[in-house]
Design a protein around this nucleic acid. Structure first.
Length: 477
DNA sequence: GGGCCTGTGT
């Protein structure tokens, strides 16, 4: 009969292989042989389910466990954080604290990673204060989690301080700080940091170059991007992955070099995925090339037939070109397939609580006050000469909803809530799951001026730091 | 002799 040691090792193998079938089988077996109450085995099972991406099963087992120790809590928290469910990770963490359990460094790492995704600065800071600062500075994993949390929350200066104080720096923490600098617009600093990597005798890896390319993209530095892309394979013997190609396509397409971007896709040694084509589509949008966009969208519909956005955009383009029949065909194809749209949502953290908003959301307890604030803002915006823009019609999926949800995109709701819930000198931080919409971007710039507030919005790929009527992205995103 | 940790393109 296997003992608990054997079972733990076998489950660890399942975790590493992401083999849910084998893991399930062992779970049943564990119960059959009466080992279902062993803490080590149960924690291994929780971790196995988490690693296999089945958080429902991990959670069910976790809830059944009569005795959970700190490792069990760490496994479930980390599981939620790693599976893109940061809110759940924080909820479990708060439950853990109510039981007066002291977090260990594994728990803290999971919590910081969740806070980074949510942009929850206050929670991240209070979690990190539960540990001795030296723990962060001497443990590269913890240090990296902290640096990443600060960077993703827009506190790049603090992230940098932690980074410089680290006793030992490995390539992973360098990557975290390089991509942090890139995301927050400190591109030259990211480049210098790459110099430091070599000075420290470290070997850059693929992620180092992803960070650098990402920085080039945000700053529109096409030549630098081409250089790094060339250097990575020719000087550092790293094979570019599809992620690197995607980044290059993005860089070229944003800069208006649509042809070169398209040729890059066609020359890739691997089959292009939806992300790569999506980067080219973004360029078509930015530079208003509907002809190429039509071609790209056809590729995208083939690659991801369930994605509503592609159908909507293609049908918009057909309408704009008076191809009414084709436009209608696309719409009915979409209906026939029962395709649902992805909805945009935004988060804002107020006093350690993360609030979530959907487009046109009225579920929030403060909803009435939020909409009143929005009305007030809209009036002030109009007075300041703002006209809701229809310029993005062709390329904005959310456009057709705009009439019904005038001014009610999730980021605007989060902003209105932030404005009424904080003192006038507090910086407002919002996180969005999609790109910030063009109209909201214009409105936010003006709102930052009217209200004299700093507003930081992190969308899917970059920071928008609004201050005194302008944005750090210089309208290039 | 055992179980939980960081970065990563749209």
């Amino acid at each position: 009969m296997p003992d608990s040691y054997t079972l733990v090792r076998a489950l660890s193998a399942c975790s590493q292989l992401r083999d849910l079938g084998a893991g399930d089988w062992i779970h049943k077996y564990v119960v059959d042989i009466g080992m279902g109450r062993n803490g080590f085995v149960n924690t291994s099972l929780v971790d196995m389910y988490a690693k296999c991406g089945s958080m429902e099963k991990a959670r069910a087992l976790f809830e059944e466990m009569p005795e959970k120790d700190i490792v069990t809590w760490g496994a479930i928290i980390q599981g939620y954080a790693a599976n893109g469910l940061p809110k759940e990770a924080l909820e479990i963490f708060q439950r853990m604290q109510k039981q007066s359990l002291r977090p260990d460094c594994y728990v803290i790492v999971g919590v910081l990673s969740a806070c980074a995704r949510l942009g929850a600065l206050q929670l991240g800071e209070s979690a990190s204060s539960m540990m001795d600062r030296n723990e962060f500075l001497s443990n590269p994993v913890m240090g990296t989690a902290l640096v990443d949390m600060y960077a993703k929350c827009g506190k790049m200066v603090v992230a940098w301080e932690v980074f410089t104080d680290m006793k030992e720096k490995d390539i992973i923490i360098f990557n975290a700080v390089i991509s942090g600098l890139a995301m927050t617009g400190h591109v030259k600093a990211a480049f210098s940091c790459f110099g430091l990597v070599q000075k420290c005798g470290l070997k850059p890896d693929g992620n180092t170059f992803l960070g650098l390319l990402c920085g080039c993209t945000h700053a529109g530095l096409v030549d630098d991007g081409r250089c790094y892309f060339y250097a990575m394979s020719h000087l550092y013997c790293l094979d570019p992955t599809i992620e690197h190609y995607g980044s290059m396509v993005d860089l070229l397409a944003r800069a208006g070099l649509l042809d070169e971007a398209h040729r890059t896709i066609l020359s890739m040694p691997m089959k292009a995925n939806a992300i790569v084509w999506g980067a080219l589509l973004g360029g078509c949008r930015l530079h208003r090339d509907t002809q190429l966009a039509e071609h790209v969208l056809k590729q995208l519909i083939e690659l991801e037939p369930w994605n509503s956005g592609n159908y909507v955009l293609l049908s918009n383009i057909y309408s704009a070109n008076q191809k009414w029949d084709e436009s209608e065909n696309i719409r009915s194809l979409m209906n026939k397939k029962g395709i649902q749209k992805v909805r945009g949502y935004s988060w804002i953290e107020i006093d350690g609580v993360v609030h979530e908003f959907l487009v046109g959301d009225t579920a929030h307890p403060m909803s009435e006050n939020i909409y009143a604030k929005l009305m007030e803002l809209t009036k002030e915006l109009r007075a300041a000469g703002y006209v809701p823009t229809t310029e993005f019609v062709l390329f904005d999926i959310e456009e057709e909803e705009k009439e019904h949800f005038l001014g009610c995109h999730s980021e605007k709701l989060a902003l209105a809530f932030g404005l009424i819930s904080t003192k006038s000198n507090v910086v407002i931080r919002i996180v969005k799951n999609l790109r910030v919409c063009g109209d909201c971007h214009t409105a936010f710039k003006l709102i930052s001026k009217i209200t004299c507030r700093e507003i930081i919005v992190r969308d899917t790929n970059r920071f928008h730091h609004f201050m005194d009527g302008s944005c750090s992205c210089r309208d290039y995103w």
